[in-house]
């Protein structure tokens, strides 16, 4: 009887030690869900969701504060992905939030006065320039967030939609008529 108790106690202590060790060894910092959600978001950092960037929005979703249909750049596909990830139902965009075609900002260099306001607004440092020098957009790094458009005092920034070309062209989903049932 006593030996049995002893054995059980020894096993309990040993397993407890293993669990305790594992808890320290495999400890996860922060909420891994935030990272997963952030990986799905398009990283335009545009703030159209009402949060100051993709990471804050991801955190808000993880905390259950924000809805999953607030990210227009992610498109409906993005909502589907978030729904799959979180195990919730798909939710269409509400009201006036709707995805736009992908675009990049373009500075009309004739009108730019070199005020640096757009540089300060750009969330991904995709604008080159200095005070009283002409600014220009690094098109390859521009996420199309439109945050630089509003601060420009001379309205010289336009959003230019990215057109389909040979390098970004995709094969279309095959659509063919099924034979009508006889």
């Amino acid at each position: 009887m006593f030996s049995a108790l002893l054995v059980m106690a020894a096993i309990a202590i040993a397993l407890g030690a293993v669990l305790g060790f594992a808890a320290i060894k495999f400890h996860v910092e922060g909420n891994p869900l935030v990272e997963k959600i952030d990986a799905v978001l398009p990283q335009t950092q545009c703030g159209q969701c009402g949060y100051p960037g993709c990471k804050p929005y991801a955190t808000a979703i993880a905390e259950g504060v924000a809805d999953i249909n607030l990210c227009p750049p992610g498109g409906e596909e993005g909502i589907h992905k978030l729904a799959d990830l979180l195990g919730v139902d798909f939710k269409p965009f509400g009201g006036d939030t709707a995805p736009k075609p992908k675009a990049v900002a373009f500075i009309d260099e004739n009108n730019c006065i070199g005020c640096t306001l757009c540089i300060q607004a750009c969330p991904v440092d995709a604008i080159v320039g200095a005070a009283k020098q002409m600014h220009t957009i690094i098109a390859a790094e521009c996420t199309g967030c439109e945050l630089c458009v509003a601060p420009c005092p001379v309205d010289c920034i336009d959003m230019v939609a990215i057109e389909e070309n040979i390098s970004n062209w995709k094969w279309k989903y095959p659509v063919y008529p099924l034979r009508p049932a006889a």
């Binding site: 952030d38 978001l41 398009p42 990283q43 335009t44 950092q45 960037g53 993709c54 969330p123 991904v124 440092d125 995709a126 790094e141 996420t143 970004n168 062209w169 995709k170 094969w171 279309k172 989903y173 095959p174």
Partner: peptide
């Protein structure tokens, strides 16, 4: 169908790479 799927996967990978680059730049900023 295979061509469609392949080019769709390529496009997704490209946008994923762009998103990762944007995230890195944003975090650096």
């Amino acid at each position: 169908y295979y061509r469609f799927a392949k080019s769709e996967i390529w496009a997704q990978e490209t946008s994923k790479k762009a998103a990762d680059a944007a995230r890195e730049r944003h975090e650096y900023r």
